[in-house]
């Protein structure tokens, strides 16, 4: 059996690490962003590690749990990797909600970091 392509391996390990940190120790996500990273969170834009972490740390819940339904990874220009995640999340005692998240990953001095991150809840009748 052929080895999985590099972008698949990097993409899946990134996704695994990202949500593990998000669910258990959000503050550690900071290592995955750079000062040039962009985050779009439900339509709101943040640029740079500091602004992104400020947003992520300010989300008002105690517990969050992500469950990944599917993930897709592609090689992208400039040696980047494009990843899309579809899943569900549960926050404290709220109902389960669907979400979509898209990442662009880039290798900077031997580390894979996230340069772009777009997050949306999958809600259709709430606007």
């Amino acid at each position: 059996m052929a080895e999985r392509p590099m972008w698949e391996q990097v993409g899946t390990s990134f996704v695994h690490l990202y949500y593990q940190r998000f669910d258990s120790s959000r503050v550690e996500l900071s290592a995955l962003y750079t000062d040039a990273s962009c985050l779009s969170w439900e339509g709101q834009q943040f640029q740079g590690k500091t602004a992104i972490m400020e947003k992520l740390m300010s989300l008002p819940f105690q517990k969050i749990q992500h469950s990944i339904t599917s993930q897709d990874h592609q090689p992208a220009p400039d040696n980047c990797i494009l990843s899309m995640v579809v899943g569900q999340l549960k926050v404290d005692n709220d109902p389960v909600m669907g979400f979509h998240q898209l990442f662009v990953l880039k290798n900077i001095s031997d580390n894979w970091v996230c340069t772009n991150d777009i997050f949306r809840l999958a809600l259709y009748n709430f606007a």
Partner: peptide, 17 residues
């Protein structure tokens, strides 16, 4: 009812429509 999306962003005018 809301689905709890208010934790991720403020509710928008469209929600109250």
């Amino acid at each position: 009812d809301t689905a709890g999306q208010e934790r991720f962003r403020s509710l928008t005018t469209a929600f109250f429509r």
